[in-house]
């Protein structure tokens, strides 16, 4: 990776990349998130865990600007992005994958990735008329496909790919945004054990390339081995935050989440 992402290598005190301040969200009177405050530092893999319906996907959607929170604000690189909307948030460098894969089914895998490569153009007028199918752009997209191991399928229609491969394509497509922050929503759901392991390796490579990662995941093995820090949500409230070992021994967490699972 390594395109124009600089990491603040000042160990121990890395810069805050994303900050959520007292974020709440209600849907038709139902509370999905309540006063959630958290900050994600550059270069981290930050896990969000919690039982079903804890508000994890809601939190992601707010970070990505899919909908605004009903209270609180979100800062990215110290800029208020609370009400920026999905597309502009993406162009600022926040990329995501979806819990249920969303490909452009009647486009090729390569074109899917190329859509992400256009992020510098979409906000302009003049750039839009240029052709997207230039060698330099295609090379970048092919590199990303190689990174996720999909370069052999570049010409296949995305809708014809098995779900596991579509997931990897989504990661490549998200990385095409040259993001500083990548949000992965249950990337291992529906994958086999081997595929999950591949995905863990992929996330590590992405992180090593300088992209900060936030991940929602149910597979605790994946979360524990991958994350530098974990926040636990329960009924829309953050009940704990810390490094994996600390979290797995936290009695409140065990009660709310791990206890039920085990």
């Amino acid at each position: 990776m390594g395109h124009d992402v600089e990491i603040d290598l000042d160990r121990g005190h890395r810069a805050v990349l994303l900050e959520m301040r007292r974020v709440s969200k209600q849907f038709h009177g139902v509370r999905a998130l309540q006063d959630v405050t958290l900050s994600v530092r550059q270069g981290q893999v930050f896990g969000i865990v919690g039982p079903n319906g804890a508000g994890k996907t809601t939190l992601f959607n707010i970070v990505c600007g899919v909908y605004p929170p009903t209270g609180g604000s979100v800062f990215f690189q110290s800029r208020d992005i609370t009400r920026l909307g999905s597309a502009r948030t993406a162009r600022m460098g926040i990329a995501r994958t979806f819990q249920i894969v969303r490909s452009f089914p009647r486009m090729t895998v390569l074109d899917n990735v190329l859509v992400g490569c256009g992020h510098r153009v979409y906000g302009t007028l003049s750039g839009l008329v240029g052709t997207y199918n230039r060698q330099s752009v295609r090379d970048k997209a092919m590199d990303l496909l190689k990174l996720v191991g999909l370069d052999h399928a570049a010409g296949t229609l995305a809708g014809k790919l098995p779900i596991g491969l579509q997931r990897r394509m989504e990661v490549a497509r998200a990385l095409a945004l040259d993001p500083r922050l990548l949000l992965l929503d249950e990337p291992c759901a529906g994958l086999t054990f081997g595929e999950s392991e591949d995905l863990v390796g992929l996330v590590q490579r992405v992180r090593d390339g300088g992209v900060t990662v936030m991940i929602v995941e149910h597979n605790m093995g994946v979360v524990m081995s991958l994350c530098d820090e974990i926040a636990v949500l329960d009924f829309g409230v953050k009940i704990a935050q810390g490094p994996p070992l600390q979290i797995s021994s936290n009695p409140r967490v065990i009660e709310a989440y791990l206890g039920k699972e085990a």
Partner: peptide, 8 residues
């Protein structure tokens, strides 16, 4: 939704 998530 996917298009939006890619900056469109």
């Amino acid at each position: 939704a996917a298009a939006e998530s890619l900056g469109v």
